[in-house]
Computed example of a mutant assay.
Amino acid sequence: MSAFVRLEPHVIDELVTICNTMLAELHKVGEATERLSATHGFGDLESARQLAAGYSRKAAGTPESARERIEQFIDTLTQLRDAFAAGGEDFLDTQFDWARALDTADRDV
């Protein structure tokens, strides 16, 4: 893309700070998703085991699971932060990629 965006230094700092704050929260949520796959206490019936397995799949292990979704958001936000940190020079090149990634992740939830 031939267009160029130049962000003011104080705007870059503010955007990077916002992204870092969001990333810190997403990392906390990511740590919490580690515990989601611990599906015990449903009982010993076959239907209970199937229910526990279903919840475990929703927690981790598939592209649509909670853990993978959080990782997708972290990856996308990291790319966005890095584009801002570059002073906007990479922003136009990446804006459609990260917007598409967020839209795809959000649509499947």
Rank of each mutant, 00 (worst) to 15 (best):
Phe84Pro: 00
His10Lys: 07
Leu36Lys: 05
Phe84Glu: 02
Arg6Ala: 15
Lys58Val: 01
Leu80Ser: 05
Arg69Val: 08
Tyr55Val: 03
Arg35Tyr: 13
Leu92Gly: 11
Ala53Asn: 05
Ala101Ile: 08
Leu92Met: 13
Leu7Ser: 06
Val16Lys: 12
Tyr55His: 10
Leu23Thr: 07
Ser56Gly: 06
Asp103Gln: 11
Arg107Glu: 13
Arg57Thr: 04
Ser47Asn: 01
Arg107His: 15
Glu34Met: 14
Asp82Trp: 07
Pro63Tyr: 10
Leu102Thr: 03
Gln95Gly: 04
Asp90Trp: 08
Gly30Cys: 02
Ala38Leu: 10
Ala60Asp: 00
Ser37Gly: 10
Gly88Trp: 03
Thr33Arg: 06
Gln50His: 15
Leu26Phe: 13
Asp75Ala: 12
Gln95Ala: 13
Thr39Gly: 05
Gln79Cys: 08
Ser65Trp: 03
Asp44Ala: 10
Glu46Val: 09
Thr33Tyr: 07
Ala59Ile: 06
Ser56Cys: 09
Ala85Gly: 07
Met22Ser: 05
Ile18Tyr: 12
Thr94Lys: 15
Ala48Met: 03
Thr21Gly: 13
Glu34Asn: 14
Ala85Phe: 04
Phe84Gln: 01
Lys28Leu: 07
Gly61Ala: 04
Arg6Asn: 14
Arg49Ala: 00
Ser47Cys: 01
Glu89Pro: 00
Met22Asp: 01
Arg107Ser: 13
Leu92Lys: 10
Gly54Val: 04
His27Cys: 00
Asp103Tyr: 13
Trp98Val: 12
Ser65Lys: 02
Arg35Thr: 10
Ala85Val: 02
Thr104Ala: 11
His10Gly: 00
Met22Arg: 06
Asp44Leu: 03
Asn20His: 13
Ala38Met: 07
Thr62Leu: 14
Phe4Trp: 02
Gly61Trp: 07
Ala24Val: 00
Ser65Phe: 02
Ala59Asp: 07
Ile74Gly: 06
Val16Asn: 10
Phe73Cys: 09
Ala60Glu: 00
Arg69Tyr: 07
Gln79Lys: 07
Ile18Trp: 10
Glu89Ile: 09
Ala101Asn: 11
Val29Ile: 15
Thr104Met: 01
Val16His: 13
Ala86Ser: 15
Glu89Cys: 09
Leu92Ser: 09
Cys19Asn: 12
Thr17Phe: 14
Ala66Asp: 03
Glu8Thr: 15
Gly87Met: 03
Arg81His: 05
Ala83Tyr: 02
Ala101Pro: 02
Leu15Pro: 00
Asp13Asn: 10
His10Tyr: 04
Ala52Met: 01
Gly87Phe: 04
Arg81Lys: 12
Thr33Pro: 02
Arg35Cys: 05
Leu77Met: 08
Leu92Phe: 15
Thr39Tyr: 04
Glu64His: 04
Glu34Thr: 11
Thr76His: 06
Arg49Phe: 00
Asp103Val: 06
Asp93Trp: 11
Ala59His: 10
Glu71Gln: 13
Pro9Met: 06
Gly43Leu: 02
Glu34Gly: 11
Trp98Ile: 08
Val11Asp: 06
